[in-house]
Write a protein that binds this DNA or RNA. Structure first.
Lengths: 383, 383
DNA sequence: CTGCTGTTCCAAAATGTTTTGGTAGCCCAA
DNA sequence: TTGGGCTACCAAAACATTTTGGAACAGCAG
C-alpha cells in the first residue's frame, strides 16, 4: 500500500502539501493540486484510516447500544431498527458499531471502554427506562450521545433525545375505536419496564378519559412476557361474559405492540372469533390493534390496524442530531447546543427525511435537542 | 483521557512494560503486572483504538458488502441477515461496517477504499451472482474476504465461501409435495440474477426429475419483480384449467422465497381458494411453499411450509471463516488455508452454533474453506 | 572468576497521518 | 526601500500505541 510519502515523493512536494491538496486546503495552487490528485490516483493511494483518526481524534464511527431485556429474537422491532440505522449510518458516511448488553453492568463496562478508547465518536442509546442510569453515566464519561426514548426526568436532567410520541399514537387509536362505537377497550402490554411501554399505557388512560370512559382494571393486563401469558390473558378477557357482569365483555383489544397484537389475533382465531369492528359492537367480533407497523403487520391473516413508527426517519434524526453534537464540540469548548435548524426541520416543525421516499414525518422539538416524532395511525381490517 | 505514558509514570516503569503487562507478555513479573493493572484501572486507562490499530495493522472491524438490486425495504431476508450478522460480530469482538451498493461500480469504489485505507480487516460479500466480478476484484485487492453464496466457477476460481444448499432444500420440498400426492407443481421465482435463485430452480428441476415428473413450461414463471407480476402469474396459473388441457391445473405452487409465497397466499385467498394439501389433490385447494423461514412465515394467515435457512449459524460461520483467514495471513506469508476444524465442526461435518440455542446445523465442507449449509424443511399448514 | 541462562525491564524506532508555525518570494503602497 | 499582505510551500511536532533489539542482573555450573 502506498502512503502519503510515496505520493509526496512522486509529486516532488512535501507531505504537508499532499495532505492539504487532498483535504481541500486553500494554500495549494490549483495546478499542484491537480497533479497530486492524479498521482494519488495512479498510486492507488488511500489515507490510512487508523493514522487519520489517531491524529484527527475522529473515527467516523458511532455505537448503537441498546439494553435488551429479552433475547434478540423476541424483539422484532429491534432488528428492524438496527437494519435501518445501519443504512442511515451508511448514508451519513458513518460506521455503526452495534453493541449488545443485557445488564446495566454490561452497559457500564461497554460505555467506559468505548469512551475511553476513543473507538467511537458518539453513542446512541435505546430502550430508555423511566429511571435510567445510563444517561448519567454517559454524561460523566463526557462522550457525545443521543437517546432514543426519554427518562421521566428528561426535562430537568437535560440531554439530547429523540422519542416517539407514543401517547398521542395510542390516543389516536382510542379515538378511532370509540368513533367506531367501541366502549369497552381492553389493553394488553408487556411489563412496564421501559419508558415507551409506560407512555403507551398513559396514552390509553388519556384516551379513555378524553371520551369519559371508565378504566376497568379487569381489562388491563400488563405483565405479558411469553406466548402462554397471552393465551391466558385472552382467555381471561373472553371470560368476562356479559351474563355475569353486564357490559363486561371487551369489544376491542388494544395491544401495546404488533407482536402482541399478532398473538392476540391468533388466539381469537383459534377460538373462532371474528376480528374487526366493521360489523358493529354487538356482533361478537373483536377489534384488535397494534403498535409499530412492522413489515408483517400488513400481511398477517387479518391485516393489522396499528400505529406506524417512522423508523427510518427516526434513525436519520438520531444520527443527524448526534453528528451535530459531535461536530459542535469539536469546534471549541462552547457547549452551546446547536439551533434545531441544524437538523433542518422547516418552519413549522416538519422534517422531511431524505432518501427512503418523502414520507412526511412530523417532528415536534420539545427542547433545543429533544425531538418528539409523531407516529401515524394506519387503519386496516383488524379494527 | 489517560494514556499509556500516564500509567507508566505512575507505576514507575517504561511504557514498554505497561504494554507488555497489559497484553499478556511473559517478560514482566507477576508483581509488576498486578501493580500496572491496578494503576491502569485506577487511572481509567483504555488503549487508544486508533493508535493501536495504526501500529498493529488491525482494526477488528469487518465490512459487510451486499450488492442489492432492489430497495432494502423489499429485501426482508437482507434485514434479517444484517441483524444477525451484527450480533454475531459483536460476539466475535468485531465491529461490523455495513456498506450498501446498488451497482457494481459502487462496489468497486467501496472495495478499493476499504482495502486501501485499511479500514477493515476483511470483507463479507453477499448476493453472489453466477458470474461475479467482485470475487476477482477482491482477490486482486489482496484483502481477506469470504463470500455468502458462490459463483458458477467456485471450484476453479478457488475462494472461501459459505452457501446454503438451496438445491437440496427445494428438492426436499418437491419430495414432500409429491409424497402428498401432488403431480403438477408450479414454480414461481424472481429473475435468475443471483446464484441462489438459480440453485433453487435447479433444485426444482432435479426434484421433478427424481420423481419422473415432466417439466411443464407453463408452470414456471421466473420474472416476478413486483406485486403486480405476482397477481398476473397467479391468474395465469389458475387459468390453466383442466377443461382445456386435462391435468394442467397446478395443485401446488412452489415459491422461491417466503416473500413471494406470502403474496401467492394472499392472491389465492382473495380468490377464495383454499390453501394446503391436506384435502388431497382433487379438492381444488392449492398447496403453497416458500423458502427462508423468515419470522413472519409462521404467523401469516396460513402458516407457511417453507425451508429454513439457519441465518444465525451462517453469520457465525462466515465470521469464523473470515477471522481464521485474517489471523492466518497475519502470521506470515504462508498461504496454507487453515484446516476446516479451525472453524470447529466436529467429526461428521456437524457444527453447533454457540449462543442462539443449540440448533443443529449441518455443514458440509466442499473445499478447505468452502462450506455448504443444509437448510431444513419446516412443515406447516400451507402445504 | 568466568561464562552461560533466564528473568525482568527499557530506549528508540516505527506506524501514517494532520496540524502548527513558520519561510520564501512577489507585488504594491508609502 | 521598507513594510505589509498575499500566495505557495514545507519541516517538525504531535497523535498513542506496539515492536525491536537489546541491557542489567542474578543464579549457577565449571
Amino acid at each position: 500500500m502506498s502512503t502519503i510519502f510515496d505520493v509526496a515523493r512522486e509529486a516532488g512536494v512535501s507531505i504537508t502539501t499532499v495532505s492539504h491538496a487532498l483535504n481541500g486546503f486553500s494554500d495549494v495552487s490549483e495546478k499542484t493540486r491537480q497533479r497530486i490528485v492524479e498521482i494519488a490516483q495512479a498510486l492507488d493511494y488511500y489515507p490510512s484510516a487508523a493514522a487519520r483518526s489517531l491524529q484527527r481524534r475522529r473515527t467516523d464511527t458511532v455505537a448503537f447500544a441498546p439494553l435488551l431485556r429479552g433475547h434478540i429474537e423476541s424483539e422484532p422491532f429491534f432488528k428492524e431498527f438496527l437494519g435501518l440505522l445501519t443504512l442511515s449510518a451508511f448514508r451519513h458516511n458513518l460506521s455503526l458499531l452495534a453493541t449488545i448488553a443485557y445488564t446495566p453492568s454490561d452497559t457500564n463496562q461497554i460505555f467506559r471502554e468505548l469512551a475511553g478508547s476513543g473507538r467511537v465518536d458518539g453513542i446512541i442509546v435505546a430502550d430508555i427506562k423511566p429511571q435510567d442510569e445510563r444517561i448519567g453515566l454517559l454524561g460523566s464519561l463526557d462522550i457525545p450521545f443521543v437517546a432514543f426514548g426519554r427518562t421521566a426526568d428528561y426535562e430537568d436532567l437535560y440531554y439530547p433525545l429523540v422519542d416517539v410520541d407514543s401517547r398521542a399514537g395510542i390516543r389516536a387509536v382510542v379515538d378511532y375505536l370509540v368513533g367506531k362505537g367501541h366502549q369497552r377497550i381492553a389493553y394488553l402490554s408487556g411489563p412496564f419496564n421501559t419508558s415507551y411501554s409506560l407512555h403507551r399505557y398513559y396514552g390509553y388512560l388519556e384516551g379513555l378519559k378524553n371520551h369519559g370512559l371508565p378504566v376497568d382494571e379487569r381489562l388491563v393486563i400488563a405483565d405479558l412476557q411469553e406466548q402462554s401469558n397471552t393465551t391466558e390473558a385472552v382467555a381471561h378477557l373472553l371470560s368476562l361474559s356479559d351474563d355475569e357482569s353486564p357490559g363486561a365483555h371487551p369489544t376491542a383489544i388494544l395491544a401495546a405492540n404488533d407482536h402482541l397484537a399478532l398473538q392476540v389475533i391468533q388466539e381469537l382465531q383459534d377460538r373462532g372469533i371474528a376480528i374487526g369492528s366493521e360489523s358493529g359492537s354487538g356482533s361478537g367480533s373483536i377489534a384488535v390493534t397494534g403498535f409499530d407497523d412492522l413489515p408483517f403487520a400488513a400481511h398477517v391473516q387479518t391485516p393489522l390496524t396499528t400505529v406506524r413508527q417512522p423508523i427510518a426517519a427516526i434513525a436519520d434524526i438520531l444520527l443527524s442530531l448526534l453528528m451535530s453534537i459531535i461536530n459542535n464540540r469539536a469546534g471549541s469548548k462552547k457547549r452551546v447546543p446547536p439551533a434545531p435548524d441544524t437538523i433542518k426541520p422547516d418552519h413549522d416543525g416538519q422534517l422531511s427525511t431524505r432518501g427512503q421516499g418523502k414520507a412526511d414525518v412530523h417532528v415536534k422539538w420539545i427542547g433545543p435537542m429533544q425531538a418528539l416524532v409523531e407516529p401515524e395511525l394506519v387503519i386496516r381490517a383488524s379494527a
